[in-house]
Each structure stands twice: as C-alpha cells, then as structure tokens.
Design a protein around this nucleic acid. Structure first.
Ligand code: FES
Ligand code: FES
Lengths: 144, 144
DNA sequence: TCAATAAAGGACATTTTTGTCCGAATTATA
DNA sequence: TATAATTCGGACAAAAATGTCCTTTATTGA
C-alpha cells in the first residue's frame, strides 16, 4: 500500500508528535529506536518531512525534531503520504493506465474509485495529533 | 497499490477472458500489444497466472492463452492479486508493523482496517467475466 | 574560542522489482 | 518426419527502492 519510506515516515512523525506533546525534542537515533527502523534511512526520511514543513528540525546540541501543537492538528496523513510517495495513490489508475480517466475508464475504474476515495478521505481527515493521542494513552503501538 | 506485475497480470487476464468469450486463443505477443506492456515481462506473468490455474496455456502452433467460460466467473481479482503480490495487501499492517494485530494495534489500525476490508471485499467479489464484459461492450479500456 | 552534538547532504552499497534474451520443450500441420 | 509456432524456464540486465557511511554545517555550552 505505502512504501517502506512512507511507513517509517508516518511512524516517525507520530512519534515526534507524541514526544512534542510531552515537551521533548527527539533525535534520529531515538526515533529509529522507538519505531524500529534503520537509523540512516530514517534520517533521510526525516529530512524530507522537515523540508515539507511537516516537522521542524533543530541542529546542534539539544537539537532534534519536534512539531508544534497546532501543526499536529493541521498535518494530516495525506500530507505525509504525498510528500513521500507522491499522489499516485490518490489519483492513479488501479490497473496502471497512464492516468485515471472516467471518460475512458479501465475495467476496474468504477469499483476502484470508491476505494481510492475512501482511502484519500481517511488520510485527509486523520491528523498527527489524533494518532499520537492513542499512543499517549497506551492503546496503540509504533513497534512490536 | 498494486505492483506493475500485478497490474499487467490483471489487464492480461481480462484481455484473455474477453478473447476467450469470442472463442479466440491469444499469444503473448498479442496480449502485450493489446494491454500495452513489455512482451517478455508479460510472458513471465502469464506463466504465473497459468501455474496458479487462473488461465490455461497451450503450447505449439495455434497455441496461446485462454480461459474457460466458467472460470471467468470463478476467478476473482483477489486470486490474481494474491498469486502475484501475495496477501500483504489483505492482511498486512498499514504502517508496516510485522503483522496487523488488533490486540496491539498501530495508530492507524482502526481506520486502515476498514479500507483494507473494503478493498478485499471488492476484489473477492469482482470476477474476470464482469470486467471482460465492460470491455466487450466498448465501455472500458485496457490501454490508451 | 573550542569542543561536542546533532541534522544535512552527498556518495556509495544492497536488495527488490522490472525488464530482456535465448535455448529447451511441446505440438500442429505440411 | 521435419518444420515452424508457441509457451516454459533459466540466466542475465537495468532501474528503483531501500539502506549505509562519511563529511559538512549549524549550534550549544563550557
Ligand atoms: S481508469 Fe483505471 S481506475 Fe480510473
Ligand atoms: S496493526 Fe497496523 S493496521 Fe492493524
């Protein structure tokens, strides 16, 4: 569904959000540890998130990654997915035709569009804050 | 969503079904031409479909690929997707945790499971015949 | 000012996916 | 039986995704 990079990206962003709620700024090393992902690869992804204004980064001692409380509401999963995987999952044809086009639809079009729309809607309506709170309460997990 | 191999596989299977409805057996070359896919790669995928009893293959002159009328109803998209991409899309965790587990869910679990279930249901309920008929009537396309 | 810390960024390595090529096996038909 | 058409199967090649390493840059605090 999502690329590995995107999965790590979402998990990392949720972890950063959770820690920011606690007032903590976190390092790549800690993030990778807590979401069980490869450190250097995670660092690349965090750079992407930072460039796309999804999280903030601070260099130097006491530096690390954080996200402001308002941004946790504003940043929806759709933004992260789009930043890392692009928007093919939102607009692309399920059978891989160059583009999805209702005027010349692929055989799966009608059925696929429903699913795709539900997915998009879900991602557009789900904020980092929402995901972080489940973690905070101990109901959900970022690794096992 | 699906791998390239899977996209080609579905398009190929639908084309074979359509032609079988017309009583024609089709070659790899024709299939690749009609679904706009790389010939040799498509050949590999057709082998997979054949091994998984999704379509029949016949060697030698007048040979090619075909599918029986009853099988067009029996073969659902879920079977093709599973044969080529495996079942991760049906049962895997949306955030990439080793396995989806409602007892220790990832933050996206509840929302993701709904989408995943809809997708699975759609694929399990959609037969090759159904997809081929739209093509037959000229309402849908396998290439553009 | 200097040393230590942390992200940024570029180059490189590995693995997976996608795609190609070619000879072997099978089979219809002349 | 010989030939040609076709899939099968293995080896190879290219591209993309995933992952690593190391140097540079910024910043803190002693
Ligand atoms: S044309 Fe294929 S999903 Fe719309
Ligand atoms: S645990 Fe992640 S989707 Fe179920």
């Amino acid at each position: 569904m999502f690329s590995k990079a995107c999965e790590y990206g979402i998990r990392a962003a949720v972890y950063v959000a959770l820690q920011s709620l606690e007032g903590r700024r976190v390092s790549v090393i800690e993030i990778a540890e807590e979401i069980d992902s490869p450190i250097a690869f995670t660092a690349k992804i965090l750079q992407q998130l930072s460039k796309n204004d999804i999280i903030n980064s601070v260099k130097g001692p006491t530096g690390g990654f954080e996200i402001e409380r308002e941004d946790m509401d504003a940043v929806k999963l759709s933004k992260i997915v789009k930043a890392i995987d692009g928007d093919n999952i939102y607009v692309g044809c399920g059978l891989g035709l160059r583009e999805c086009n209702a005027d010349k639809p692929c055989p799966l079009h009608d059925k696929f569009v429903d699913i795709r729309t539900d997915l998009r809607t879900m991602l557009q309506n789900t904020s980092l804050f929402e995901l972080a709170t489940g973690l905070e309460v101990g109901l959900t997990y970022l690794k096992r």
